[in-house]
Design a protein around this nucleic acid. Structure first.
Lengths: 121, 121
DNA sequence: TTGACATATGAACAGATGTTCATATATTGG
DNA sequence: CCAATATATGAACATCTGTTCATATGTCAA
């Protein structure tokens, strides 16, 4: 990887910006959260759960998914601490883990609505 | 795809959650933003730019990237309206597009710091 | 215990993603 | 004009991701 350190143009800004970078494990954790929310299926699940607690079967219905696909994605959301769950007999109910997630989503909606948005992917 | 509509367990919650889902193009736009922030390289660039305006060469140095890789990722950040840029002769200076992005990042840091975080990817 | 149901999981496959390398474009000074 | 510099872009490639299908686990009722 070309580190490009022999031709830094603005040494001072580079130093300032470098000092501000979070530690690698924080950066990784943040990227993981965004990566997780960066899939339409999981984002849909998160939106659905921001309405109310739902079981896997409900989530599959709301998000138009097979129950297997829902379960796979819920596992990821669980590992990332984005959702919590409780078991009641055969049924597992999921809900959002905390308000940060909803808050993040709200902020991003503001961002999107500020531009005439063009999808690229 | 198995739509799973014959065995909805909680019809009322399913209706409520379904009504709350954003329109597909909004959902897509949001997912795109998260997907974009969900890469360590791009997230690092965003953090760097939250410190100050930087040229491509500076960004490459701060983020330990080849200039080509930086340029590729900046293109994506540009298309997603996450960064803006201005040209000054040969040099292109990048900066964050708005405060929503920094706000989103701040929220996610709060989320991360609330748990003993375990990386999964 | 047996069968029905809700959910979870593993393997496999197609499609997407990020980097590299080579090359192109654009701007400035000589 | 030409050479040097800063940035951008295209193709190729290895890696990662999300879905599906088949199967497993766990729970309840009969």
């Amino acid at each position: 990887m070309d580190v490009c350190q022999e031709k830094i143009i603005h040494a001072e800004q580079v130093r300032i910006a470098s000092d501000l970078l979070p530690k690698p494990h924080i950066l990784g954790a943040l990227a993981d959260i965004f990566k997780t929310l960066g899939d339409q299926t999981r984002l849909k699940i998160v939106f659905a759960l921001s309405a109310c607690e739902l079981c896997v079967c409900d989530i599959a219905a709301v998000c138009n998914l097979s129950e297997s696909a829902a379960s796979h994605q819920l596992k990821i959301l669980r590992m990332l601490k984005i959702v919590k769950f409780r078991k009641e007999g055969k049924i597992v109910y999921y809900r959002l883990a905390d308000e940060h997630v909803s808050s993040i989503i709200k902020q991003s909606i503001d961002h999107v609505s500020e531009y005439k948005y063009v999808t690229m992917f």
